Computed example of a mutant assay.
Amino acid sequence: MVTKVAIVTGSNKGIGFEIVKGLCSRFDGTVYLTARNEERGRQAVKKLEKLGLKPLFHILDVTSENSIQEFAKYISDHHSGIDILVNNAGVLDFDKPVTSFEDAKKLMNTNFYSLLTISKFLYPLLNNDARVINISSDWGLLSNIRKQHWLDTLIKEDLTVDEILQFVNDFLQAAKNGKNSYISFAGHYGDYKVSKVAMSALTFVQQYEFIKQGKNISINCVHPGFIKTDMTNGMGDFTPERGARAPLYLALDAPQTLKGTFVWHDCHQVNWDD
């Protein structure tokens, strides 16, 4: 019997942990809780086991190509493919509204560049009716960008991955040029905003590619709400459990025809480029 597989990156705490909990309760298959720290990951699994749930753990550092490649090999060796993939891993230094170039590059490695590596090694394992959910943010809406050139470029129907990379690199150059250049690009927390705008744009480009390839794979991005987590120093409007609502909707309940959209925390679609 073929067992379905769901994977949530960066899921030892916060929204990711709650998504794993929801999947374990409702998904008819194997759910992988992943984390870059093995001890914290296994502790999270034990918490869920105490609730009668049975996630599996696998170490996964999304900033490491080797780690992603090893995980992909493990999944390939043990399963027939991936049915649900939630790209949840992300970082934000809430105490630094304007960061250094080095910090911005580090954030981009986790929040955006990792998606390209995941695409390279995990996407080939996606089953034909798989669902990919990218955890974005209201800061991932295009209106957060202040440079007109990129406002015009990122809404193109024929947008390419290379152009998204140029967008990210242009921001990193602005960060290298200093505070004024940084803020003129995307305001405070510009590194996080740019990473999530890039994630959103990549979602739409990749959905178009899946359709061109004739694959019935859906990929959507979602704003889970302003969630009270360690990343936000406990500030926010919703609990992590509430934050998991829209991602779980996309993973389990949304029609498979919902493709290449931006979904709000209350599960309705919004125009990304308004």
Rank of each mutant, 00 (worst) to 15 (best):
F121I: 03
Y74S: 15
N66S: 13
I68M: 02
P124R: 03
I59E: 14
T117Q: 10
D61R: 05
K96P: 10
D103H: 12
K50F: 10
Y74N: 14
D103K: 14
T110G: 13
L126F: 00
A72T: 11
L56P: 02
L92C: 13
D103Y: 07
D61H: 06
T99H: 10
G90A: 14
I82T: 03
L115R: 13
K120R: 09
K96N: 13
L60W: 05
S100N: 11
L85R: 02
P97C: 01
I84Q: 05
L92S: 08
N66R: 14
N111W: 03
V91M: 08
H79Y: 06
F94T: 08
V91R: 05
F121T: 00
H79A: 01
V62C: 04
V62S: 08
K50C: 03
E49P: 13
E49Y: 07
N109S: 15
S67Y: 05
Y123S: 01
K50V: 08
Y113I: 05
D95L: 05
K50N: 13
D61L: 08
L53A: 08
L56I: 04
H79N: 10
N87Y: 04
K54D: 03
I84M: 04
K50Q: 12
S119R: 14
A104H: 11
L60N: 01
I82K: 01
K105P: 14
K105V: 14
D93F: 07
G81F: 00
S100C: 05
L92P: 09
L125C: 06
K73W: 09
S64E: 13
S64L: 10
S76I: 02
V86E: 03
L85T: 05
K54H: 06
N111L: 08
F94G: 09
G52F: 03
K120E: 07
F121C: 01
T99L: 07
A72E: 09
E70P: 04
A104N: 14
K47Y: 13
S64R: 11
V98E: 09
K105Q: 15
P97V: 02
E70H: 11
V91Q: 06
S114K: 06
D93W: 06
P97G: 04
L60D: 03
H79K: 07
V86M: 04
L115E: 14
F57G: 02
L116V: 10
P55F: 00
V62A: 00
I75Q: 01
D61Y: 04
K50I: 03
G90P: 11
T99D: 12
F71A: 00
F112Y: 15
K73A: 15
I75K: 07
D77F: 06
I59S: 11
F71M: 10
F101Q: 05
N66K: 15
V91K: 11
I84W: 00
D61W: 04
N109Q: 15
T63A: 15
L53R: 02
T99S: 11
S114E: 13
G52R: 09
H58M: 05
D95G: 10
S64A: 12
N88Q: 12
A104G: 12
L51V: 06
